[in-house]
């Protein structure tokens, strides 16, 4: 198994998720959101890049901070259909229901958006041809979600992860140079050896001809 420190560094970098640029706010969804359904297209062509990015970068954070809310992704093959997000919002005062039939995520388009249950209303967001940041912005407006502010410790971890990444880039460059130099040296030695062998055989050829009297020197 890989060493402890290396694993921990990788994990903190992933958990901090600094990959997006500009950094996305971590979002908590207001309690009245009941369910969240995304219809995604399998390909990135035709304006589906943004929705996929939203799924990859924003949705894990939403899920982490709102583990109880079902967040279902339905991937379909039909590229001409728009990518949509369906929000099921609970009406104020409606009781929290747990026995609502809910299909799970599907990669084969099997998990279609069901009609709203009692006490729910539907809000849809069109995600096609939009950047994931814009989708998240509209999502926050429509659900009344509040960004979670990172704690000083989170910020420190994030900074450390970035510093490690920067130092890693420097080290990678250095190691690459060293490996290149080593390879070059090996190549030169091999070349010199082969040239020496060629000269040796040439001299042998001359010697043999000289003995036979075929070659005369100047």
């Amino acid at each position: 198994m890989v060493g402890v420190i290396r694993r921990l560094n990788k994990l903190t970098a992933k958990v901090a998720m600094p990959a997006s640029d500009p950094p996305l706010p971590v979002v908590t969804v207001a309690r009245h959101s009941a369910r969240l359904l995304l219809r995604l297209i399998d390909s990135i062509n035709g304006g589906h890049m943004g929705p996929r990015k939203f799924w990859r970068t924003a949705l894990p954070r939403l899920k982490y901070w709102n583990p109880a809310i079902p967040m279902i992704v339905n991937r379909i093959r039909e590229q001409e259909k728009p990518a949509t997000m369906t929000l099921y919002l609970r009406e104020p005062g409606a009781p929290v229901k747990t026995d609502v039939p809910q299909p799970s995520s599907s990669f084969d388009g099997l998990s279609k958006a069901p009609p709203p249950a009692e006490g729910e209303r539907i809000v849809t967001i069109n995600m096609s041809n939009r950047r994931s940041e814009a989708i998240l912005q509209e999502f926050m407006e429509k659900t009344g979600a509040v960004p979670v502010q990172p704690t000083p410790q989170d910020e420190m971890e994030l900074r450390e992860a970035e510093e490690r990444e920067a130092q890693g880039a420097v080290d990678r460059e250095r190691v690459k140079r060293e490996v290149e130099a080593e390879k070059r040296e090996k190549r030169m030695i091999a070349q010199a050896l082969s040239e020496a062998a060629a000269i040796k055989s040439a001299l042998r050829w001359f010697d043999a001809r000289r003995v036979l009297g075929e070659v005369t020197y100047f």
């Binding site: 799924w55 894990p60 799970s104």
Partner: peptide, 22 residues
């Protein structure tokens, strides 16, 4: 030196990483 997690904490993270998958 290793940060360790309770089962529910680890599950919470993993469910976030796997969101949207069958």
């Amino acid at each position: 030196q290793m940060q360790q997690f309770s089962l529910c904490d680890a599950m919470r993270y993993l469910r976030a990483f796997e969101v949207g998958r069958p």
